[in-house]
């Protein structure tokens, strides 16, 4: 059964103008997105900057007002519930984009990690300390670190502190917003491995947001490509990377740099062909406002925003 179901999600931001700040228009940051994530799977959300990935994640966890549509968690509707039942809000946690600014620099690691515990559980000081130390060990940091401040850690370690905080309440779903984009390759590897390990251990489900296709390919089971608030294509990893159907996906996939320098010429050639195809058929694949059409299934798992034909 799907642990998370998102139906026709729309999140609009008002554009205010004029002397009295009236709303004159809307930014359609998320414009009709639907998907479902199976328990224990990793679902990748890919798209260029500004395509609405973060807003989708924030909408699901309730940090953004949902304009229309619904979000169901374990079958229960959690759309815009101001007072989500405790059980649900502790089941969904988010890891934020920037490990450098998402931790309060003036708080000790102990307080950072214990914050969700304090909100949801009544633990004695001793119990709390023990839990925090266990969590630190779980993310591979020494339990003595509890008295340190964030700036005393490396980027990868900080991101792990963020993860420790996110898993403190043993959530079922983690929304990871570009968890490794700010990190070096070696540290990236560390965090990604770790995320996979705890996924197995705790049976976690991930909504994995990233613009790095290499990482998405490594981490995810299913992938959606987002463009200007809409889905362009959705399918299994296999389908997206090996049989992309939409011209936008094709171009995106062809632009991934290859680590083998001998493929350089071939890739260059290929990219040029795809770019030509893209330029030629742009008008066919996008409507007059440059937005994608609605998704149409081409197989059980593979949905593509193909042009409407008469």
């Amino acid at each position: 059964m799907a642990i998370l179901e998102v139906e026709d999600l729309k999140i609009y931001f008002p554009i205010k103008a004029g002397i009295f700040n009236r709303t004159v228009d809307h930014i359609k940051a998320v414009d009709g997105v639907s998907f479902a994530i199976e328990e224990g799977k990793t679902y990748g959300l890919v798209g260029e900057s500004g395509s609405g990935k973060t807003t989708t994640g924030r909408g699901i966890i309730g940090l953004e007002h949902i304009t229309a549509g619904s979000v169901k968690f374990n079958g229960k509707d959690i759309t815009n519930k101001k007072k989500k039942t405790k059980a649900i809000s502790r089941d969904i946690q988010m890891i934020f984009q920037d490990p450098y600014s998402s931790l309060n620099p003036r708080k000790r690691v102990r307080d950072i990690i214990a914050e969700p515990l304090r909100n949801y559980e009544n633990l004695t000081k001793q119990e709390e300390k023990k839990r925090v130390q266990e969590l630190l060990e779980l993310v591979g940091l020494s339990p003595e670190s509890i008295l340190k401040y964030p700036h005393e850690f490396s980027g990868g370690q900080r991101q792990r502190i963020g993860i420790a905080r996110a898993i403190a309440l043993k959530p079922k779903l983690i929304i990871a917003d570009e968890p490794v984009s700010a990190l070096d390759v070696s540290v990236q590897a560390q965090v990604l491995n770790f995320m996979q390990d705890i996924q197995k251990e705790l049976g976690l489900t991930y909504l994995f947001i990233s613009h790095d296709l290499g990482i998405v390919k490594h981490m995810c089971d299913d992938i959606a490509i987002m463009y200007k608030g809409r889905y362009v294509e959705q399918g299994t990893k296999e389908e997206i990377f090996n049989h992309p159907q939409h011209i936008y996906t094709k171009r995106l996939v062809s632009a991934i740099p290859d680590i083998d320098p001998s493929n350089r010429e071939k890739l260059f050639q290929f990219r040029q062909e795809v770019q030509e195809e893209y330029d030629e058929s742009y008008n066919e694949y996008f409507d007059s406002e440059g937005l994608a059409y609605s998704l149409k299934p081409i197989s059980e798992t593979h949905l593509v925003a193909l042009p409407e034909k008469g």
């Binding site: 390759v185 590897a189 560390q190 390919k217 680590i259």
Partner: peptide, 15 residues
């Protein structure tokens, strides 16, 4: 470094 980049068929990344 090369080993820590996600590559085809790689299960565990090198740290």
């Amino acid at each position: 470094l090369l080993n820590s980049v996600p590559a085809e068929g790689q299960d565990k990344l090198h740290v």
